[in-house]
Nucleic acid binder design. Structure first.
Lengths: 194, 194
DNA sequence: GTCTATACGGTGATAGAC
DNA sequence: GTCTATCACCGTATAGAC
């Protein structure tokens, strides 16, 4: 069942990722989604803000699922993170550096202008952080250390994606992949249960 | 000598940093700068795009100077980077997470929509990267290794700033400070001349 | 639920007087 | 150099018919 509401949210996800909040007009979103134009405010009484909040939540779910899949596919978290970064680099490059980091642009644009959207972005990043953190705890780290390292992982991924897109090069993401994998492995092997 | 052109560029720097390109209107920039409104296209025949290009260049110079000062103030690059990150965290926190990372927002907004502005952002990041790289080479690293590590440093700073602003917490920047300093020190001590 | 029409303010940019 | 007036377009949001 693909409701008009669903199509609008998914289209908004892509447009916000590539263009950002202010550059993505309501008309553009509706037209690209193929959803009926007249029922926009029927499905989203909160207007553009509500669409963005829903899109950010959707982007967070999608991202968290991808992260989980990569982390679950390898016996060691450092290898999971490394392949995740390589996959991100592949996707960013494949899109011609037009896509990648579905949250960062909206997060920055709205940090000072929309409390509801900022709240959604915070929840999104905290959710993704928790996925990394749980995996690190399962590998033997205590909660505080896992949370700290998970936050660093998310920060590094976002920064490397930002630089890769801006510089039109996968190098920042590839550098980050090696750096993160090395750091994670070191922290795990220095743990009591390592 | 503070020409109207100069005032406009500096005002644009601040507004672009806080709100981004699409959210900062020409009227807003002119009014906030106190510059005469009628001479906008006399000083900037290229319109809004030219203002943004100039502002990005100015932001890059300012940032590079701050980085250089911190790196020059310490005998070891890892300590310079650590205090730089702490200074950034202080500034971001002090602004109420409204400012920080003068380039990232414009860089992301324009990566797919304005070639001239993207070019300015690329030059800006490359310039800042070279400041780190030169300091690492002075500490004994070879050029390739220094460039790689410098790119990672820039990526990590940008990502941590992004997360700190979004989450309204200095923690991402503080985590990044410790991890980067540790990583840099390790790389330097494993070098031949370390 | 979906449509069309429209209100209302804003945008970047230009023209021409001074 | 600076001003005012104005352009054509776009934005979000709403009203009312069906």
């Amino acid at each position: 069942m693909t409701t008009p509401r669903e199509k609008i949210i998914q289209t908004a996800c892509n447009l916000l990722e590539q263009q950002g909040y202010h550059a993505s007009g309501l008309n553009e979103i509706i037209q690209a989604s193929g959803a009926p134009k007249g029922s926009l405010y029927h499905y989203f009484p909160g207007g553009k803000t509500e669409i963005a909040v829903e899109a950010v939540g959707r982007a967070a779910e999608t991202t968290a699922r991808i992260v989980e899949e990569h982390l679950a596919a390898y016996a060691d978290p450092d290898e999971g993170v490394r392949t995740l970064l390589e996959e991100i680099a592949r996707r960013v490059e494949e899109s011609g550096y037009a896509a990648g980091g579905p949250l960062m642009l909206v997060a920055l644009e709205t940090v000072n202008s929309s409390e509801p959207i900022n709240h959604a972005c915070r929840q999104a990043y905290r959710h993704i952080q928790s996925v990394f953190s749980r995996r690190l705890m399962a590998a033997g780290m205590n909660e505080a250390a896992a949370d700290s390292l998970a936050l660093l992982i998310v920060s590094t991924i976002e920064g490397a994606t930002l630089l890769s897109r801006t510089l039109h090069s996968p190098q920042p993401l590839r550098e980050a992949a090696g750096f993160l994998a090395e750091h994670i492995r070191r922290h795990l092997t220095s743990q009591p249960g390592g």
